[in-house]
Write a protein that binds this DNA or RNA. Structure first.
Lengths: 212, 212
DNA sequence: AGAGATTATGTCAGCCGCTGACACTTCGCA
DNA sequence: TGCGAAGTGTCAGCGGCTGACATAATCTCT
């Protein structure tokens, strides 16, 4: 009962979880090899020796597989957020959590989720897809922020606002990174942090880093 | 040669523009009646007495029709932005342009673009779609901001950041409005402006409007 | 005005994402 | 061991979307 406390009990549950993971792994791998559009759901299913129908019993859509991976990454970000000192202002805490979270990713497991980040980051077609799911990711982040601040996210809309602005800056940093070749993954964090740090001045009376 | 200076010269051009408009109009109307998902591209095409294939020669996708309408609205926002005093800070100018733009919409033509706004605003399924195109809309807005500030949008990323944060707040205001029933369209502006005004404090050391 | 080049349209066939329905197998539990 | 529940495969089908080809409409030039 050490780590296995959250493990599924029955064989059925384990099989299901395994299938889910297998499908995600196969999908991510195929997406890498042939691109997102260049991979059919049948191919993904075939790679795990199941029918296409089964694939769609596990995922609502092809895009969903990617989202699934993204949410895994987000979860780790939320963990980092929880560990930030409570007196840190929300947006700043989020920024620092992002930094911590990144360091964690680089240290621990670039295998599973890291490759997902990698994939999402590098394929332009998935950026739009990702965008589409910002709503969902944003909602989760808003909940995390609300929990941290001890407010009710259904009546207090500030967490949601911070979350959406955060993703906006994130997406922007990502775009900049892509525009500059999508090479060094470490550089991605630099761009993201830069954009996050620019936000306060950009929405203020100034314009961010002045030209002079 | 008064207003017709920008009008297409040939019959062909005029027909094409007309077809485009007819398709948009029919689509928007059908979307209203049966919803976005509930309307097939064949039905849209049939409503204008053309083949489905022709529809897809005018629009890359079904979603594209909606985007087209949205861009029309954005264009009017950009016009309002250009008319803001030059010494106004970018984000503030954008906020005020939004207000001006809205008033303009309410005065002038709620017929065409207004119904597009209405449609996009009211159908939850289109919010995701809309999200997907925020990239494109954001890029245009960034260009408008860059032009206003006299900077190069390809090297200076601040306009893009302001644009994305703007859309983030916009989307947030929209969500709040939807959550509260999607009734009064005028209320939508109130929510949007509220969210826009909250941004500076939300990303600062505070938390926006304090509880006390 | 008429011939020839361009361009728009219709038709057809087909891929792919996605879904409902039904039969069959596998697993859980008594 | 046997029964209900849950997972899977198969099949048929819809709808978005595209390429290819033939036809019809427009443009251009003489």
């Amino acid at each position: 009962m050490t780590v296995t406390s959250s493990e599924p009990t029955g064989l059925r549950e384990r099989k299901k979880a395994r299938m889910r993971r297998d499908l995600i792994d196969a999908a991510i791998r195929l997406f890498h090899e042939r691109g997102f559009e260049g991979t059919t759901t049948e191919e993904i299913a075939a790679a795990v020796d199941v029918s296409q129908r089964t694939f769609f019993r596990y995922f609502a859509s092809k895009e969903d597989v990617v989202l699934e991976a993204a949410e895994g990454v987000d979860q780790s970000l939320f963990d980092s957020l929880r560990e930030r000192p409570a007196d840190e202002a929300p947006f700043r805490a989020l920024r620092n959590a992002m930094r911590d979270h990144w360091e964690y990713l680089e240290r621990e497991d670039l295998h599973l989720q890291g490759s997902a980040v990698n994939l999402i980051a590098r394929s332009p077609e998935l950026i739009d897809t990702n965008m589409r799911y910002y709503h969902r990711r944003q909602a989760r982040l808003a909940d995390a922020l609300a929990e941290r601040a001890g407010v009710d996210p259904t009546t207090d809309h500030r967490p949601s606002l911070v979350a959406s602005v955060f993703f906006a800056a994130l997406s922007n940093g990502h775009q900049i990174w892509c525009a500059s070749g999508c090479e060094d993954l470490g550089l991605l964090l630099v761009h993201i942090l830069e954009q996050l740090d620019l936000v306060p001045q950009a929405v203020g009376d100034g314009w961010g880093t002045p030209d002079a």
